[in-house]
């Protein structure tokens, strides 16, 4: 497993076109997450969490400012370059799970490795190992419709880990789960983070979940409102 990637964001600004004008989603965001760090990102709706996540995950290029993940300067990437970055560096966990209904748990996880053109025996072995690691070794042939919410999110986590990413981005991973399932998913994420050493950034509305992260970041109206590190106990305000 590759080591976690450092996240370094400087002066990030991003806006969306809306009707005749534009709406600012991020406005001068500065952020540092150390390699192998575990950070949570909180904020109200419209604060810019999803936009920041999308930019860090290479779903869209930054409009202004510098975003460097590991050795990759995302502002220099477009199209296939971003796809390659997503494939090799990032693992996504979505609130809506993002599983393909026609594929089994095994196939959903394997899909991520297919895109890397890993040889079939190797990808099958890796996929099965991951499903065992998330506790779904006995449910490999089940389709998403046959799994509970918590199990689906475990499949999604296994898929996020399929290409051994250096950065895991989880967008409200417990948003659609009951309390017990949510706790199980978060504990799994923490366990995998500890075992694999990848950097994890969790977007959440849940203060308790956010509080478990070693670094907590609060966003408001496109700006970093507060960033707190547990270990050092120091916090700083920005914007």
């Amino acid at each position: 497993m590759a080591a976690g990637a450092t996240i370094s964001v400087k002066g990030l600004a991003h806006a969306f076109r809306s009707g005749s004008g534009s709406v600012s989603a991020l406005d001068g965001v500065d952020l540092e997450v150390p390699a192998g760090g575990y950070a949570s990102l909180m904020g109200s709706s419209g604060a810019g969490k999803s936009t920041l996540l999308a930019i860090l995950g290479g779903l869209e290029p930054p409009q202004r400012g510098s975003v460097v993940v590991g050795d990759t300067d995302l502002s220099r990437l477009r199209g296939d370059g971003l796809a390659r970055y997503r494939r090799s560096t990032v693992g996504f966990v979505f609130q809506h799970f993002g599983l393909i209904g026609t594929l089994s748990a095994l196939e959903n996880v394997e899909l991520a490795t297919i895109l890397t053109r890993l040889p079939r025996p190797a990808r099958r072995a890796r996929t099965l190992a991951l499903l065992h690691a998330v506790g779904l070794g006995q449910r490999t042939t089940h389709k998403p419709g046959e799994l509970s919410g918590g199990e689906r999110q475990r499949v999604a986590i296994a898929r996020a880990l399929a290409n051994e990413p250096r950065l895991i981005l989880a967008d409200e991973p417990t948003g659609n789960l009951d309390e017990a399932s949510a706790r199980g998913v978060i504990e799994l994420l923490e366990q995998l983070h500890a075992e694999r050493g990848c950097t994890v950034l969790v977007v959440t509305h849940n203060r308790a979940i956010a509080g478990r992260a070693s670094q907590q970041i609060a966003l408001s109206r496109g700006r970093i409102l507060a960033a707190t590190c547990h270990q050092s106990g120091e916090g700083r305000r920005s914007g």
Binding site: G57, L59, G79, D80, R86, S88, F92, L115
Partner: peptide, 16 residues
Amino acid sequence: RREIGVLKAIGARDRD
């Protein structure tokens, strides 16, 4: 739409 987005998020290229 979302499924296509997810495919892209896990690394699928436009041509895929």
